[in-house]
């Protein structure tokens, strides 16, 4: 019974990771990825690995979304300038 929280966390991580792979648009993928980061942090906590959970939170909640979204903006902007000014 005390493993229920581990089972819940594992199921959430598995479902969210599958959903992240299934998304097609990179911006939406980044959104699912940041939620996946939170679930992973909870999973590490319930498996008694708070150091790893802290690393996951530090990197996954703000830094990774920022890097992905900046890359998305750059590629979209390059597409626009290739087609000509707006």
């Amino acid at each position: 019974m005390s493993d229920a929280v581990i089972v819940v966390a594992l199921l959430l991580v598995a479902a969210c990771a599958t959903a992240a792979v299934a998304q097609r648009d990179p911006a939406r993928q980044a959104l699912v990825l940041s939620v996946l980061g939170l679930f992973l942090a909870v999973l590490f906590t319930v498996l008694q690995a708070p150091d790893v959970g802290l690393s996951q939170l530090a990197v996954g909640s703000a830094l990774t979304p920022l890097l992905i979204m900046l890359s998305v903006r750059r590629t979209r902007r390059r597409g626009r300038t290739k087609e000509g000014p707006e």
Binding site: L38, A41, T45, L57, S61
Partner: peptide
């Protein structure tokens, strides 16, 4: 373990 919640509430 409260540190985890602190980081999440911050970031």
């Amino acid at each position: 373990y409260v540190d985890l919640a602190l980081l999440l509430a911050l970031l």
